[in-house]
Every structure is written in C-alpha cells, then in structure tokens.
Amino acid sequence: MLLMIPGPVHLHERIQLAMAKPMIGHRTKDFSEILEYCTEMLKKLFGTKHDVFIISGSGTAGMEAAIACFSKVKRITCIDNGKFGDRLGKIAERYTEVDVVRFEWGKSIELDEVEKSLAEGSEALAFVHNETSTGILNPARELAKIAKKYDALVIMDGITSVGGDYVAMDEWGVDVAIVGSQKCIGAPPGLCAVAVNDRAWEFYNEKCPFYLDLKAYKKKLEDWQTPYTPAVSLFFALQEALKIIEEEGLENRIRRHRELSAFVRKWVEEAGLELFPELNEYSQYSNTVTAIKMPEGITDKELRGELKEKYGILISGGQEHLKGKIFRIGTMGNVTIRDVVTTLACIERILVKRGIIKPVLGEIEA
C-alpha cells in the first residue's frame, strides 16, 4: 500500500531495518548517545537552541504536555480553523479558562480577531502551524508577533510542519512547539517532541499530568536519559530518520516538500478541480498536504475506495463535517516525485473514466 496520507507516512527501508536491531538497556550509554543525537538534531528542525524533550507518545501527547505543563495562566486563546486547532482548545479546557477564536474550517485566520482576544486578557496563545485537516499553513510569525505585544506565552503545534517546512521557533518568538514522529520526519508513530524555551517555565503548572510533566524530562535530560522507560525501538527508528534528514540537508528537504505540493496544486488547477482552503494575505497552502474539494459525479467512497482497492494507494478524506466534501493528498516525509505522479495518475484515471475531468498529467512538468 502506497501511503499518501498526512501521516503515518511510508517508511524508508533503512528506518524499518533500524527497528529490527537487538534491544538495548534504556539506562545505558548506548541509549544516551541515541537520545543526545536525536535531541540535538530536533533542535535544528525546530529552529531553536533551547531544550527539546522526546516523549513516548503520539503527537496528541505532545499537545497535552505543551498545554498542561504551561497552563499557569488566567486564560489562554486557542485558534480553531481546523480539526487540530479544535483539539488544542479541548485540551486547554481541562486546565484553564479558554477563549476559542473560531474560523470556518478552511478559512484563513483573521489576525484582528486573535489580537482582540489577547487584548481582553489572555496570557497565552495556542495555534496550529500547519492544519492538515484543511490543507492550510497558518501565519506563525505574525501570530507570535501579536502575542508578544501582550507578553503572552506562545504555544505552536508544529506536528506536521517541523522537518518538512520552514520553522524558526526562536526567530519567530515561539515559546513552546511540538512535532510528531510519523509526519514530516518520516519515522513510525509513537514518539513526539516538545521544544521549550527558558521563558516558558514562568508559566509552569506543577499539577500537570505525571507522565507528561516536562520538568521530569528536563531533569533527566541532564544525564541524557528519559524519566520513564522509552519506546527504545522507536528511538532506533527516529535516529535513522534524522540521519536521513541530515544526509539530505534540511533546506533540500523543505524544498522537496514545497516542490511536490506545488506539483499537486498545479495538477488540481490543470484538471479543473478546486483547492479547499481560502487564503488571505497572511496564510498559505500547506506544503505537506493538499486538500481538494470533491468534484461532482463521484463520492468519497468511490474515489478513495477504488484508489485503495484497485491501485493500492491510500489518501485521506475529510474529517467530521468535512467528510465526503474533500479529499487530501499527503506530501510529507521521504515521499518522492514518483509517489506523487503515481498517485495523481491513478486519481486522474478514475476521474477521466467517469467523464469528470480530461487527462492533463502529461502536460505538467515535474
């Protein structure tokens, strides 16, 4: 099965083989060396010189750690213009008062609305950088700038942008950021990382979840250890995935992600289909997933079902109220132009057969 979804992504053979290594003790020098390498490499991906803590848990575990550990605020503003912005708000509601600034899913963030919430007393801002549910890249730099105007803590979900798009946590003024292993990094699901600068600790809440208490991770990181038993085989995989990124070069990797997503968008345009996100002057199309409106004449079940059963390719549909209305093509991780062209060719074949579009793929330069 060719995975062309916004995570989990196809695993490079080297990463699969890395997980087959014999088990090692997690309190040994061997593991410490792996943890140190992964931590230092992740700092480069986050664009930070500050601490990075790797947790054995999914991206959502990282989201909760970021919110819960730094929830010593009267109120937090959470931006919801997609599934994962909505999730940030739901997590935050468990720890403090929340002002959810909502926009229709797929619509761009209006900065004035965010500033209004902060001006009314929020002491923190949480948002998703790359909203994969709608295929939109939110304006991280501009949002962080507004938050700093009100001296608010800035928490950024970079789960699907870190390692695949430009992220500059320190430069932008982001205090806390999150990434998941199974997205742009190209590793298996099951690990996440939270990057934390020094200022964030002013907002530390000691009543955060025991397992996700980042202060415990910070203390053990002094000895290049984790506070609890880590998923060792996943660390083997993460180490290999980060080596592949280092070999490719982060700038080259970001360029590849951007070129592949641009190719998908060009195909959408030439085929007469319609992209789902509606952009303003601050937002952009995602470079790791493309969200496309479902054309008339075919259902989600027919399109994705035939693509999976006949061609062995898996793409994603819409989530919640967007089910059946959009389909999404992932371009993240170690994906290649061959993977993208193959996917588009098969989708095109299905749509051409039904008379929905005319063949166009041969006219587009890779």
Rank of each mutant, 00 (worst) to 15 (best):
residue 126 A to G: 10
residue 152 A to C: 14
residue 155 I to M: 08
residue 134 T to Q: 09
residue 137 L to Y: 08
residue 163 G to W: 03
residue 156 M to T: 07
residue 167 V to H: 12
residue 124 A to V: 00
residue 129 H to A: 15
residue 154 V to W: 10
residue 157 D to A: 12
residue 162 V to C: 08
residue 146 I to V: 13
residue 153 L to N: 08
residue 146 I to A: 00
residue 143 L to Y: 02
residue 152 A to F: 00
residue 152 A to R: 05
residue 140 A to F: 02
residue 160 T to K: 11
residue 143 L to H: 05
residue 142 E to Y: 07
residue 129 H to D: 03
residue 161 S to M: 09
residue 162 V to A: 08
residue 135 G to T: 04
residue 128 V to F: 05
residue 143 L to S: 01
residue 156 M to Y: 05
residue 130 N to Q: 08
residue 166 Y to L: 15
residue 128 V to N: 09
residue 157 D to H: 13
residue 153 L to C: 10
residue 124 A to M: 02
residue 162 V to I: 15
residue 148 K to L: 03
residue 137 L to F: 06
residue 122 S to R: 08
residue 122 S to I: 01
residue 121 G to T: 12
residue 127 F to S: 06
residue 133 S to P: 12
residue 159 I to M: 11
residue 139 P to W: 01
residue 150 Y to V: 06
residue 161 S to Q: 13
residue 141 R to Q: 14
residue 147 A to T: 00
residue 144 A to D: 00
residue 161 S to G: 14
residue 153 L to S: 07
residue 153 L to F: 08
residue 139 P to K: 07
residue 145 K to G: 06
residue 151 D to Y: 05
residue 128 V to K: 08
residue 153 L to P: 12
residue 137 L to N: 12
residue 124 A to T: 00
residue 132 T to M: 15
residue 157 D to T: 12
residue 167 V to Y: 14
residue 159 I to W: 01
residue 122 S to Q: 08
residue 122 S to F: 02
residue 139 P to T: 08
residue 161 S to K: 11
residue 142 E to D: 15
residue 151 D to M: 07
residue 159 I to D: 14
residue 140 A to S: 15
residue 128 V to C: 11
residue 130 N to K: 10
residue 145 K to Q: 13
residue 165 D to W: 10
residue 148 K to H: 15
residue 163 G to E: 05
residue 154 V to T: 10
residue 166 Y to M: 12
residue 148 K to I: 03
residue 125 L to D: 03
residue 135 G to A: 11
residue 159 I to Y: 02
residue 132 T to Q: 14
residue 158 G to V: 08
residue 147 A to M: 01
residue 160 T to M: 08
residue 161 S to P: 03
residue 144 A to R: 10
residue 123 E to N: 10
residue 150 Y to A: 11
residue 143 L to N: 04
residue 121 G to W: 01
residue 154 V to K: 12
residue 128 V to P: 13
residue 131 E to V: 06
residue 153 L to T: 03
residue 162 V to S: 06
residue 158 G to C: 10
residue 140 A to K: 07
residue 126 A to V: 01
residue 156 M to F: 05
residue 140 A to H: 09
residue 167 V to P: 03
residue 149 K to C: 04
residue 145 K to T: 12
residue 122 S to G: 07
residue 135 G to H: 06
residue 155 I to H: 09
residue 145 K to R: 15
residue 131 E to W: 11
residue 167 V to G: 03
residue 151 D to I: 00
residue 135 G to C: 12
residue 130 N to P: 05
residue 126 A to N: 09
residue 135 G to V: 02
residue 147 A to V: 00
residue 150 Y to S: 13
residue 141 R to Y: 14
residue 158 G to F: 07
residue 143 L to P: 01
residue 140 A to W: 00
residue 137 L to R: 15
residue 140 A to N: 05
residue 137 L to T: 13
residue 141 R to G: 02
residue 153 L to Q: 11
residue 158 G to D: 06
residue 140 A to Y: 01
residue 138 N to Y: 03
residue 133 S to H: 11
residue 131 E to I: 05
residue 126 A to W: 11
residue 153 L to D: 03
residue 161 S to F: 02
residue 156 M to P: 06
residue 141 R to A: 13
